[in-house]
Design a protein around this nucleic acid. Sequence first.
DNA 1: TCTGCGATGTATCGAGTTGATACATCCGGC
DNA 2: GCCGGATGTATCAACTCGATACATCGCAGA
Lengths: 190, 190
Amino acid sequence: MSRRSGVLELAVLGLLHESPLHGYELRKRVNALLGPLRAISYGSLYPCLKDMLGAGLIAADEEASEAGAGRRSRIVYKLTAEGKERLQEQLAEGGPSAWDDESFGVRFAFFAQTDADVRLKILEGRRSRLEERREKVTSALSRTREKLDRYTLELQQHGLESVDREVRWLNELIATERGSVGVRPRSTQS
Amino acid sequence: MSRRSGVLELAVLGLLHESPLHGYELRKRVNALLGPLRAISYGSLYPCLKDMLGAGLIAADEEASEAGAGRRSRIVYKLTAEGKERLQEQLAEGGPSAWDDESFGVRFAFFAQTDADVRLKILEGRRSRLEERREKVTSALSRTREKLDRYTLELQQHGLESVDREVRWLNELIATERGSVGVRPRSTQS
DNA sequence: TCTGCGATGTATCGAGTTGATACATCCGGC
DNA sequence: GCCGGATGTATCAACTCGATACATCGCAGA
């Protein structure tokens, strides 16, 4: 069970929904989605594909060489009906698992296929998560401020500003989402 | 051999150089150094400590309960002379391994114990690394700009701005370093 | 008082992941 | 023609994570 981390499965489902792909290209696109950090290896991708095949979410076609020429065979994966259904389920999921570090990036990448209310929930959840983090760092920082050397302080400060910037970005996105849905931005917390 | 990823070893050496610590506290500090992402578990820390013990870099003291009261025993680790030497070697290392994603944060955290010329080298190496990354992302972005939906584009754009911000931060640090060494900032590239 | 409950503390294990490696074909430049 | 780098599928030892086990401490509330 478990089909590995789940994020990878979602990324594969989303990418194969756009078009069928073979392993090599699939990995490149998954890693483009996930970013330079968090990139995955074949040792993750292939077992995941194997599990998804077993679960009937995807199907594999041996790409036949047309006209019999010596074309190398590539294995092309595409979504099954069951896989499409699974993707829809995943995209409808708006719980905490959608906004943690591990999966937020992938969920956001597929926002175009996600309902507006779920989008908003995920963005707000992500913001809360980051604000908690910010809170924790600031309190730890104010407790140890004097004991840290210049560089450690600089590093903490920079990390803090990164979180702030992320929160501002989310605020803009949330405002835009609310605007396009017709709900007034000026309603609850700052 | 291999003593695992190397970054962890450096973090342990650096932290134990400040003061002896037991495992639980050591892990908390290592994870504060590494940040919420990249945090490590006991399954990494304990084997690392075992290896370092075997290599003679650290020593373990069973913390004796004073006055015989029923105090629980904690295992306190401290640097050996060999460990201090090893730390100095590591801090003198200014090669590419010092500025990749994995280890830059830790190297920077110990800048106060690092020579000024090595500091500068690491900061400039890190900047180059990020500029390469930026280059790759922009070219990929300009090739696929029209085919991306609003959200994917937003994500890429945000990633790009994160890199830019990081580079600006490094520029400031480099300027400060040059200033404090007495070398004119206005000498080579922009 | 005593009873849980969360933090502190050491330690291991199954399951999952990485980076290296193997092997083979394709294609552009010299 | 031939070399090097990209394309392509696949595996493995070494390493890491999250869960779990076990035990003590301090302390808030019944």
